[in-house]
Design a protein around this nucleic acid. Structure first.
Lengths: 216, 216, 216, 216
DNA sequence: TATGAATGAGAATTCATTCAT
DNA sequence: TATGAATGAATTCTCATTCAT
């Protein structure tokens, strides 16, 4: 044990870590609100309550900071996904849960949607870094494959469903609704962000997915 | 015949129109490639081969130019949508066509996707202008409502399907796949942009939509 | 002839030219006083009485501006050199004149010395541009070669003198004295920049050069 | 033997000395490569493999560090100069040796040239410190005066030669050639840094100096 | 209608330097 | 003695926009 007057290397590191995390969170918010081009380093520093110079100290430049934010955000969602335990549920319920999870995650993490948008606007250039690419691989695909197989085995699900295609469909149905809600609200002249509308959407999505997967 | 020194008013107008369109196209490309914040007025002028000052002459400022681009892009898609004539087709075929149309339009107009992204990043602020709101209203909703009703009437489609929800699902499934293809390709380690992959996607989407709508 | 109200393209160009030259002069002074690293773009703009942005408009960046300054400075000295007409003078006088010219030019253009220093500090990187390299070629070498040859022919000069080596010696003797006058004054504890000291230096240099070249 | 935890004061001092020298060398290289304005404290620390803070601990600030480098560099050359023993040589040989020494020192210490440049760019401000002025005084002047006097006395050298002027000429001829080799190579289109070119230069310089000094 | 010149405000990035331990 | 974290003040460069013709 160390005395209070001679702080551990660990403690100093923890400070550095804390600063980095503070910056990362501030940057995530700024980038998600304004996009890469519209984000301001000044504002990020201000949000973080830290000196702007420190951002460069830890993250080199704006692009690299953006990349670090993306990596962080992916790490976060993957972590949540891994917590999902659908193995013991019957296939229909499991699939429903998976749809709900995706919907809720997007709903509760609107910044994830806009960051994903920005990342794609810049052609995925920021995740070209293959080192981190592995962490991108969603465990949901495996889960979904398992669910589909179990359902098919017990005779309730149709066969021949590509889990990747299905995952993209599930994600896309949530993503488009939530990510483009401003435009869609304007087009349809109805508020898509009320709790009621949210329930209806979730219900519709489950219907579509299960309507497709369930045998007859 | 007009003398070289005093062109007809008409001709000058035609020039003016041409310039405006040239700018609009250049701006559309720039905004779709870089987003609103990343777009550069200089580059737009360069792309258009026209003097930067002229952009301000016609479009006042960057924001208004962006808005004009959005309006143009909506006008374009609505025009294409209106050409779709699905009335005489049997409901199942009509619905399939509608899915195909959406998919193909997004595929052939990738700038539409990124511009829509940008518009939503900025919270739809650019289409708040009610004057143009009308052009936003997609005729596809009416068509879809009609198809669903016809299908239900003849007994092949299930009832109680909200055309707005279904439309969002159809659009979302195409949009997410195409708009996030860079990220998705990285995640799944498979090229989503080959012709074969495109066919498979379209086929999957039709299966999902029809699997959901078709009675039994 | 053009009316006063419709200024010529030429006139506008002349304005642009004037701005560029103003910038160039301001930059020359700043770079020669502070070196490339110590020069400040802000100060250059201030010296020029022009907007800083304009510097970038015309010269792209600091490095390119420095390069433009070097080119300008070379152009200037070459122009002066070309005015020297030594052909009709007897070789001894001609050589003396050449030494005087070099000395006086350096004396009257201290910025030339410091800029040359900076250019060499940066390893000549700034004049690697071969396009402009031609203008670097000093006419003095040709003149010197002619003088040496005439002197040798008439029997007053020794033979076998390499004009390039001699030119470097002439320049070096002036350059070192003037360019390092601060250090040298400190070392020798005597003011090297009085008119008397200048006369003595010039006289010494002529003695050395002619003492070497003159046959016996 | 000393325990690992409480090193002797002496040892610590030795470490301190070593650190200071390491910094000084790193700084010398950095300043000579980039000039005062272009040098970076970060890079100096990196070159030295030591923490940046330590530089400030020992040298206070950048300017003082630069000054320390200059002092060091002068100390070095003076030390070498003092090793020259020309007293026992006949005047002509002694003078030749002195030219050779100057040439070789500059050739082997290119950083000396650039540092001298920088010092003069900043108007000798950094050696105004009279305390160290003594070390500036080159012993070569005394030596040269002696040689000239001996030569004159034995009748081989001309009289009336100012040793300061001659020293400046000797130094200048080497300095200009070596310090501006990039520019000169570009101007003359010939590589001045080959061994052959070096020999020719040295030979030329001896010819000039001796051609001037030798009687008849 | 069209254009080159010019600008002020701002944005990213850099740098010497100091803090805390 | 030694170091990683942190900072304020520049500094280079950018950008949307306007002037003048």
């Amino acid at each position: 044990m160390t005395s209070a007057s001679t702080p551990l290397v660990e403690e100093r590191l923890r400070d550095a870590d804390r600063s980095q995390n503070t910056i990362l969170t501030a940057a995530r918010d700024e980038f998600s609100e304004h996009g890469l081009g519209g984000a301001r380093m000044d504002r990020i520093a201000e949000r973080a309550g830290l000196n702007k110079r420190l951002i460069y100290y830890y993250f080199e430049d704006k692009e690299k900071l953006f990349q670090a934010v993306l990596e962080q955000v992916y790490r976060d969602i993957r972590e949540e996904e891994r917590k999902l335990n659908l193995l013991h549920l019957k296939p229909e319920t499991a699939l429903r849960r998976l749809v709900e999870f995706t919907w809720n995650y997007y709903l509760e993490h609107p910044e994830f949607l806009t960051l994903l948008n920005s990342a794609n606007l810049h052609r995925g250039r920021h995740l070209a870094d293959s080192q981190k690419a592995r962490q991108l691989n969603s465990p949901l695909i495996e889960m979904l494959a398992g669910i589909l197989e179990r359902g098919r085995a017990e005779g309730t699900f149709r066969g021949g469903v590509d889990p990747v295609q299905l995952y993209i469909s599930i994600a896309g149905m949530s993503y488009f609704y939530l990510g483009n809600n401003h435009t869609l609200s304007a087009i349809f002249g109805r508020d898509l962000m009320t709790p009621k509308a949210h329930n209806e959407r979730l219900s519709h999505m489950c219907d579509v997915i299960l309507g497709y997967v369930l045998r007859n």
